[in-house]
Amino acid sequence: MELLILSGLLLTGSAAGVLGALFGLGGGFIFVPVLMLVFGLAPAEAVAVSLVGIIAGSTGASTVFVDRGSANVRLGLLMEITTAAGAVIGAALAAYLEDWLLMCIFSAVVLYSAARMILDPEKVIAPAENASGRFVFSYKDDGGRDSAYEVQNVRGGMLLCTAAGMISSMTGVGGGAVKVPLMNLYMHIPIKVASPTSSYMIGITAFSGAITYLLSGQILLEYAAGIAAGAFAGSLAGSAIASRVRTKHLRKYFSALLIAVAVRVLIQAGGIL
């Protein structure tokens, strides 16, 4: 592999790794178009390499987030069940629906979430004093204090995770772009917990697809290695920055990124990408 190509892969992986760790996204929306347009990979090759990069970034960030307690592992496991089930249903349904229509629906959902995150202040439901329960957790707020929060609308959230899994698998992007606003706006999970939890979940979601590609020999190993090494390094940098960014700014930057994702998917729906 030429040094120039390797440098490009490392750079792409690092950029996606930083953004992924900061905002709870997988980075597929960066990997796939760059691998296709800049490195000349076929769509299936780009998706396979992208999945390895997503895992490296997600797992790299999770080593920090899970250890620090900012990712809610229990809630992540629960929501991942319905997300994974939704992805299977979505893959089956995708054959019967037009791609451009799905992408337009996805963009509309993401744009709506972005607008809500900009306009609505963050709402965290504090549990009653001395309350305990399966869905009462705590996190470190902007001031570094331990704050308790009670997850709301768990059943509805799980149902919507099924829809998020369906949309993600039908459009090929959007795991984190749908789940983070869902957790923050609907389930009232603080954004400082929602993003790391989404980061943790994304690796588990990507595992199924990546192992299938790997065992059937469809992954370009050298490209995957370059992207993965960059994504891993980027994710460690991103997770270090994440703890220093204030909640208000995190929501604002995340909304801007959501708009960029929606525009990127709309361009894809128009057949330009």
């Binding site: 997600s58 797992t59 999770s62 995957a224």
Partner: peptide
Amino acid sequence: IFLLVISPLIG
């Protein structure tokens, strides 16, 4: 790459 891919499952 194999070890990297299965790491979320190990977790």
